[in-house]
Design a binder for these strands. Structure first.
Lengths: 234, 234
DNA sequence: CAGTGGTCTAGACCACGGA
DNA sequence: CCGTGGTCTAGACCACTGC
């Protein structure tokens, strides 16, 4: 199928193995034949079997350990992958026209809660940017962001009136680690005003911390407009 | 590093390539050397280069096309992976003791909104299960679930007083497709009561639809207790 | 058409970790 | 110790697609 020829591809093996798991032929927790035996069964090399099984393990269906062999996971630890698009792309994917508006950008001393959150030394300088992302004229996301000046000195000379801080950061600073959270919060007066909802309404909220080689770069809170849902399929 | 010997491993290549991207030596949108040239540079086989570059592409750093070659993605489409653990595991990972309690389980005719959502023919039979998941004695999640009888006939003879519907389903029915959404909703009187929050409070909410070979199996709403956040690092 | 990535083979050495 | 998976090599054929 996958190949025009009749060779057994790693995709064929994946499909077959998945089918055996689903049909119950290979029960959860049961030990599977080793790679050599499977290679013989599928009349291909061990390399090909290895790729198939390795990918199935990455996808959360199997557990593999040297010497112990390969087992079917009883509760498939399937992973949901959410692509984290830039706001602009997300709006445009909805068929809308993206518009950005700066609310404020100020250099200030990091508030205590932020210093604690990012493990900054006290009274470090940060740039605080607040901005809005629109879908046409409809509010889409209100963003509240702090950028650590010491990690990104150029931020002090940057004008965020045309380019959003996220797009600017991505083009300017690489990152090595990200912590991303989602939660439901309550709209305070400010957020409610920007998102055109009633104060106290539930707001889908994201928090993102970004590091570069252990140095904190930025902390962002993203408040999504009413009705937003983060969706994935797998 | 990765190997005890001094051979160049695919992991070394990944690191080097990432470093070049981050340092700006390989600019976004720029065309990279082809696999043969890279293999020569790293003095390894093309197979090894291929694995490194393929994985970097899967991770969202590169774009590869036959004949067109490999390019650095301008806006790294990094993906957040959330593992979707079973509630029990999630609670136990927090160091708590998991406790399950059935609220109700009834066979009924699918309400119209559900038929529409799952594309069921009208008036199909479903089993409606409501239950609670606790962390010790603290409410953790309230679950509202419908299971399509036609897809899982055994559900009619199943007692959900001891085993939660999710654990039961996972052990009973395989699935091929899942749609998973997260949103912020407002606690109605029922949800507020079960989660011990005030009516109208924001509630982090998940919705999950599961199919087996195109057949809808189950629809679940999961309401998380106050303070819940879904977190990932990458 | 021709260049690039996608995949397979046949064989090898080795790291890990269970018994 | 020694079986199992993890990875690399050297070489090959081919699918796709831009020119």
């Amino acid at each position: 199928m996958a190949q025009s020829n009749d060779t057994t591809s790693y995709k064929d093996i994946k499909q077959t193995v998945l089918a055996r798991i689903r049909s119950g032929k290979w029960q959860p927790d049961s030990l599977l034949p080793n790679e050599q035996e499977l290679a013989a069964e599928f009349s291909c090399t061990r390399t090909t079997v290895n790729r198939a099984m390795r990918e199935l393990a990455e996808e959360g269906y199997l557990e593999r350990r040297r010497k112990a062999g390969t087992r079917v996971l009883s509760a498939p630890q399937r992973q949901a992958r959410f692509t984290i698009p830039m706001v602009r792309d997300e709006v445009e994917a909805l068929g809308g026209t993206y518009r950005y508006a700066l609310v404020s950008a100020d250099s200030e001393t990091a508030p205590e809660w932020l210093s604690a959150r990012l493990a900054l030394s006290p009274k470090q300088s940060v740039v605080h940017v607040r901005c809005m992302h629109f879908n046409g004229n409809t509010p889409f996301q209100y963003e509240d962001r702090w950028i650590v000046t010491a990690s990104v000195p150029q931020v002090q000379q940057t004008d965020f009136s045309e380019v959003g801080p996220n797009e600017w950061l991505i083009q300017t600073v690489p990152f090595t680690n990200v912590e991303l959270s989602f939660l439901a919060s309550r709209a305070n007066a400010t957020v409610a005003g920007f998102l055109d909802v009633t104060e106290g309404d539930p707001v889908f909220t994201g928090e993102r911390i970004t590091w570069l080689e252990g140095q904190p770069v930025t902390f962002a809170k993203m408040y999504f407009a009413a009705g937003y849902r983060m969706t994935t399929e797998f």
